[in-house]
């Protein structure tokens, strides 16, 4: 019981911390590409950890109480986590590509080879 609580606190703590960084980075960074860095990486990592806490809770509660409800909880959380990991970077790539094609250029950029390639 004590170890389960410790593991849950650690996983939820890491998850909430990185989700917080994601939304603060969204407010702090200067242009859309750097905001995408913060939003995609930090919220994906944070959501992985909060979901891992739920998976650990589900499987260990199933072990203790034997109620099949907790096993269903853990399995469905795994499916949701897989959906999240596949869809998040792909969505970020779609947004970045759409932003560059619609003419939003990176601010303070030292080099932009994509713009040069398009001009040729």
């Amino acid at each position: 019981m004590g170890t389960l609580l410790a593991v849950l606190y650690i996983f939820l703590g890491i998850g909430v911390f990185f989700n917080c960084l994601g939304s603060v980075g969204l407010l702090r960074f200067p242009d859309v590409y750097t905001r995408l860095h913060a939003a995609t990486k930090a919220t994906t990592f944070g959501s992985i950890f909060t979901s891992l806490a739920v998976i650990v809770y589900g499987f260990s509660s199933w072990n203790i109480t034997g109620d099949s409800k907790f096993r269903v909880l853990a399995l469905h959380t795994i499916v949701a986590l897989v959906c999240l990991i596949i869809t998040n970077p792909t969505g970020a790539h779609a947004i970045a590509r759409a932003a560059h094609r619609s003419g939003v250029m990176p601010r303070q950029a030292v080099i932009d080879e994509l713009k040069e390639a398009k001009l040729k």
């Binding site: 601010r107 303070q108 030292v110 932009d112 994509l114």
Partner: peptide, 14 residues
């Protein structure tokens, strides 16, 4: 990302 969010040091490019 945590380091860059807190300090704000960036040097971006494509």
């Amino acid at each position: 990302v945590a380091y860059r969010v807190i300090t704000g040091k960036i040097n971006p490019g494509i």
